[in-house]
Design a protein around this nucleic acid. Structure first.
Lengths: 153, 153
DNA sequence: ATATTTTAAGATAAAAGAGTCTCAATAATC
DNA sequence: GATTATTGAGACTCTTTTATCTTAAAATAT
């Protein structure tokens, strides 16, 4: 798999947050319910995002987490790197050691191109961009609910 | 990671075999020694490739495994699919359910492009092509030895 | 036939990823 | 202050991947 499950959950949660009123703290429980992700597991993942400075949290009643920056300034890449690290964008596809510009593996050049297009995709897509698109086309973040239903009370 | 470790080992072994005299059975022990992969683990992986019809094996003295087809007719894709399956080329990058042409996820289109370029790379590169390139440029299949040293006795 | 060399198959172990549970810390409300 | 709602942190479990070990089966050579 390209991205770990933790990473995918983190991205879905980040998209959820980007669709919320700016500055408002959203309880993790609400997100885990809506997104159908285990509460404790999601908590751990979001703790990573908080530690990495992508989210900030607030304890107690009316607490929760929120994006530090505006969603339009958060490329998917930031979330991916915070959770999965950057090996996806640095490692040799064939796992051949010593692969690089100096001593490329047989598919180094081709893979470098592919890797760049992954990088581009993750760097150019922001949370807000995807949220807008999702709203417009009623895309899903879960198996059941359309995007609009997801944000009803 | 894009490819599992098993898959990478399988690819390295397939490249090793593609550099051998055509039709000759190569003992797995020899490959595991040269490629610095655990013998039993490599055996299991090659069993999969045998089961998938990419390799054929022969027991007993002078036995081993060999490529069924000529290396020039074996794209990397065959090895990858035999070991890792095809989810890499079919699954949604964001893990969003219901993602497809009918109900695409926000990055479906961009990801589809990237995925196609991965597919292209794996389909167009054959074992022989990579072996030739490796021979010419003395590329590595292990952390230590150059390609030519690897095949000395 | 017997011993030897090899792959096949299955049991087991270790490590990593995914997921759960419990309790502590913090902040608001009553 | 007590209660409640929330995140934080750590231990724990389950599953998958990775790796090892043992025994069986097949083929060869003696």
């Amino acid at each position: 798999m390209l991205l770990s499950k933790s990473c995918v959950y983190g991205l879905r949660a980040a998209l959820y947050l980007a669709n919320q009123e700016k500055g408002k703290f959203i309880p993790i429980r609400q997100m885990s319910d809506k997104l159908e992700i285990s509460f404790h597991f999601l908590t751990k993942i979001l703790q990573q995002l908080t530690a990495e400075g992508i989210l900030e949290s607030f304890k107690g009643p009316n607490g929760g987490v929120r994006l530090v920056r505006n969603g339009s300034e958060v490329p998917l890449m930031d979330v991916v790197v915070a959770i999965d690290g950057s090996k996806l964008l640095t490692e040799c596809a064939l796992g051949l050691p010593g692969c690089g510009v100096k001593a490329p593996c047989p598919i180094h050049d081709k893979w470098a191109e592919t890797r760049d297009s992954i990088r581009e995709m993750l760097e150019q897509s922001t949370l807000t961009e995807l949220v807008n698109k999702s709203r417009k086309e009623n895309l899903r973040l879960t198996s059941e609910d359309g995007f609009d239903i997801l944000f009803n009370d």
